[in-house]
Design a protein around this nucleic acid. Sequence first.
DNA 1: GTTAGCACTCTGGCAGTGAGAGTGCTAACT
DNA 2: AGTTAGCACTCTCACTGCCAGAGTGCTAAC
Lengths: 353, 353
Amino acid sequence: MARRKDRPGPLDLRSAAILRAVIEEHVATAQPVGSVSLVEKHRLGVSPATVRNVMAELERAGYLGQPHTSAGRVPTDAGYRLYVEGIADTAPLEPVEQLMIRHQFGQVEFASEQWFRLAAATLAGTTHAAGLATPAKAQAARVRRVDLVAAGERMASLVLVFAEGPVKQLLIPLDEPLAQEVMDEAARRLNERFGGRVAAEIERRLPSLERHDEAARLAVRAAERIVKALKEFDASAVEDVFSEGLLNVLAEPEFAQSDKVRRIFAVLQDRTWLAALVVEVVDAGDVRVYIGTENEPVEMRDVSLVLAPYGRPGRATGVVGVLGPTRLSYPHAISTVRYVSGLMNELVDHLYA
Amino acid sequence: MARRKDRPGPLDLRSAAILRAVIEEHVATAQPVGSVSLVEKHRLGVSPATVRNVMAELERAGYLGQPHTSAGRVPTDAGYRLYVEGIADTAPLEPVEQLMIRHQFGQVEFASEQWFRLAAATLAGTTHAAGLATPAKAQAARVRRVDLVAAGERMASLVLVFAEGPVKQLLIPLDEPLAQEVMDEAARRLNERFGGRVAAEIERRLPSLERHDEAARLAVRAAERIVKALKEFDASAVEDVFSEGLLNVLAEPEFAQSDKVRRIFAVLQDRTWLAALVVEVVDAGDVRVYIGTENEPVEMRDVSLVLAPYGRPGRATGVVGVLGPTRLSYPHAISTVRYVSGLMNELVDHLYA
DNA sequence: GTTAGCACTCTGGCAGTGAGAGTGCTAACT
DNA sequence: AGTTAGCACTCTCACTGCCAGAGTGCTAAC
């Protein structure tokens, strides 16, 4: 021991190699790893005893832990963190995997919301963790197009297409039945005045709208609903999160008690936490890794996330990523997520050019 | 024993009462129920010994089972079935609960897809099982309205509103950029010719369409996509299944191993089985109960479903219901599902009148 | 036909045991 | 100095035997 620094940061090469070996072994087996099996499987060039000494140091430094006194070592979240820092900017994804993913993306119909599902599904498939994807979203949504159609006797269906892609359908109750022509006229006026506008702009013009004829009155009511919908959309940091393969994760041994799983699901469903992460990732502008206890919801202290933004900052942005146990293959997850985020970039560029 | 029939059907009153008591007790406690505790909690007016005799008969008849020789009795699926038959057409939902549900429905914005989520959520909340709901769907979807908008440089976004409510967004790649006016013109023609039409009708007319100008050519491409989308919609017996509160169910003691849960999720996600049930329920035209082993997927032998159709046969129909452990409070589930289905009927009538 | 009494059975929890795996320490080695 | 062999020690896990508790089925009395 002697002069070897215990607490602080960077490790000498051998310690780092051993930490890496422990992590990779543990990721593969899900078991605590002992000194003997470690030197057997990874050619470390030293004896188990030496490995034990180093492990003890790593444990004192907080990078490894022991489930109990006479078990092997398990990486701590700090250990994973150090490991991830060490590999952060390396290896692009294997060409074979790149091809597979590209191929899957080639299959998809040009139906917008499909992409996000697809991105999530692809990530889930290739990383064996859960895939996550949020639709691209601008800070302030703009109207691209409005359409009004009769629905039922005293009901108008308002179809609102956002400039960013998504479509919303709203219903407007009417005092009396209106002819489709009237609705068309109202829609025409709305498109003319509000196409490309954000909520604030439309709201400002609301008071000055005419209300002379039926079409005008309908237009006003529709405009009010549109403003509301735009605002709601703006307020939600995350409109939707597509997830695929949460089941895969749930199958991992660390989630054997379904109770744990339930809580994780609940946090994901609630979405406020995810929304905060999304903002963070978009701001950061690159892949970010959240490991176990680094997540402040206690329910999430057993999972890790690898998230990457996509899109064009200022214009539409979204996030793709994976969620898995802390015992995750970070290098693979990071390169896969980064690659998929690149693909999504291409798509966004192509569409919202 | 003597002249009492063992195998077959209807029970004498006392046996039926005891079966009912066992079921209700088991539903409440999730434990095997013994003769002593049964006479204590339900005023049966007989001694435990007598109850034991009757229970033995019920077991021989296949309505009760024992986890092991010296445990209490547990209802079999056949037992539940008999019990459900006995209560099938009774008691409407408690007025208090009716009010609560109606209140929740009152809250919702008039945004169509919300209802299904709401129905599922309400069912989940009031029955403590998972709530399920499928959107109303006609046998052959009709076009209500088509809209074309520029998206990106060489891309047109096709917004397709079905007569039944849902909206689909499709993307059409273009050979060259087109002005919005051209798209409007194409959309106008499409609406004129195909409004209210089903897939087959549109397909028949496809060859005879003009292709003289840009707008006409775009209209043809759009029509092809529309036909495809309509067909896809028609082919899927179940477009979407909204589920809420699967987590609640997952929390029940019978689903402690997360493995079981995973399989159940998988079957639900796959949806082919659900689709078959939906068809069955719609055909039946009334609440249907599926109990445990009556479900042929083995993964589903531990769950029960209570499903009811809503909508107008021939026109749009859908299904609402709950999914829970076989140990379900059937009377409550049935009346709740029936009530919610009634509410959905009102909504459909109101809208697609 | 119903009930009290009783012997019997099976589970679930608890303590005890032994093998196995892995550690940390000490002392020898390079 | 750093590295390694040897060894005592610790802790888990699987297995066993044991006991209390709950519930049953049978028999005999009411």
